[in-house]
């Protein structure tokens, strides 16, 4: 009766696969903006370094979410079962979503290099 028992991956894995990249992106944007705005207006010196560290961490997180999604996709096994198809869908969805978020985070890191002299 309980559908939880039947899925080949844990619910938390599934959630990370569906939302991991998005959350990493959110943290990256809000974090980078907060560091820049509060840091520069507040007169803090290490703004660029801090943003680069944050970027690296969030790129890793989004990349990890992509890998986990690939794992979910594999763990779904042959798609001959309703749940397997659903999980495989989540995996495929996660791979592309997290990959795109990784690209966006990378794009959001680019500006830092234009402000290194500041």
């Amino acid at each position: 009766m309980n559908p939880r028992d039947r899925l080949p991956v844990s619910r938390w894995t599934l959630r990370f696969c569906l939302l991991g990249g998005g959350i990493a992106w959110t943290l990256h944007l809000v974090g980078a903006w907060a560091i820049a705005e509060f840091g520069i207006l507040g007169g803090f010196a290490g703004v660029n370094t801090l943003i680069l560290v944050l970027s690296a961490a969030m790129l890793l997180a989004a990349g990890a979410a992509t890998l986990v999604s690939a794992h979910v996709r594999r763990a779904a096994g042959p798609e001959n079962h309703e749940d397997a198809r659903t999980v495989a869908f989540c995996g495929r969805f996660g791979i592309v979503t997290n990959a795109v978020f990784t690209v966006i985070i990378a794009a959001q890191t680019v500006p830092v290099f234009y402000f290194l002299d500041q």
């Binding site: 944007l29 980078a32 903006w33 820049a36 705005e37 520069i40 207006l41 703004v47 943003i51 795109v100 690209v103 966006i104 794009a107 959001q108 680019v110 500006p111 830092v112 234009y114 402000f115 500041q118």
Partner: peptide
Amino acid sequence: LPELGLSFFAAASLMIGV
């Protein structure tokens, strides 16, 4: 406001186009 802060939003605003 600090342009560095703005430019993250420029990147995001462009990438949403994808």
